[in-house]
Design a protein around this nucleic acid. Structure first.
Lengths: 144, 144
DNA sequence: TAAATAAAAGATAAAAAAATCTTTTTATTC
DNA sequence: GAATAAAAAGATTTTTTTATCTTTTATTTA
């Protein structure tokens, strides 16, 4: 459904959210370990998200990544767009250039509702929401 | 959403369906051109679908690919499984090994309905259905 | 049965995605 | 201000996906 980069980005954002209580920051090594992501790969992803202002970071000792109040309002859609681009909004499922509402590809109508619901869902769920669920113990980020 | 291979496979199946009237067959060159797919690449994909009995083919002059009555009942899900594997059924959206109904990942619950609807849709729509819509002129396979 | 046709199969190459390694910059603390 | 810590940046490698090229095998027709 999403690229590896996107999966890692979502997991990292959620993990950083968890560790961003009372001004704390979390280093890339810990993020990598806790999300089962290759260190340098997840570093690149976070640097990119940082440039795009979805996460914050400080360099140097006691530095690290953290989310501020605003970052917690980041939706899944924001992360998907930042990592995988806008394809989910713009691209035909079969990759046809001229597919549209007026000249739909054979599967267009069947996918309309699916895509609409998917987009609605990723737009309406934020990192803050997921963070709360983790804190409440109703979901888990563990990988094995 | 799907791999390029899968997109090509779906387009090719639909195109071959169109050309499978009264015992006719269609060659790989024509399929490639009509689906804007690289000839050898789509050839490989069709060979694979042929091995898996989703399409039929004859070699030699006047040979080519065609769909029989049974092939027309192939669902989108069959094609997705043949080309991209079972990931859509089995894999966690975040790629977490231990994600399940009892230990859901943070996004699991939000994606449950989306995935369920997607699976239901690809299982209930067949190549024959899409073929009929094309014939009725209510959808288009053209890629400009 | 020879020539032609067409798919099948195998090998190779190119491009993209994912992962890793190295160096640089910045900041902190002693 | 030297040593250290940590992210940023750049370069490289590996893997996977996508695409191409070449050879083989099967079939038909003349």
């Amino acid at each position: 459904m999403f690229s590896k980069s996107c999966e890692y980005a979502i997991k990292a954002m959620i993990y950083v959210a968890q560790k961003s209580k009372n001004g704390e920051r979390v280093g890339i090594k810990e993020i990598a370990k806790s999300t089962s992501a290759p260190e340098h790969f997840i570093a690149k992803i976070l640097q990119d998200l940082s440039r795009k202002k979805l996460v914050n970071s400080y360099k140097g000792p006691n530095g690290g990544f953290f989310l501020n109040e605003d970052n917690l309002k980041t939706s899944l859609a924001d992360i998907v767009k930042a990592t995988d681009g806008n394809g989910i909004y713009t691209d035909c499922v079969l990759g046809l250039k001229s597919c549209s509402e007026s000249t739909p590809c054979p599967v267009h109508n069947e996918f309309r509702a699916i895509k609409k619901n998917l987009i609605k869902m990723i737009e309406s769920n934020t990192i803050g929401d997921f963070n709360k669920k983790l804190e409440a113990g109703s979901s888990f980020l563990k990988n094995v």
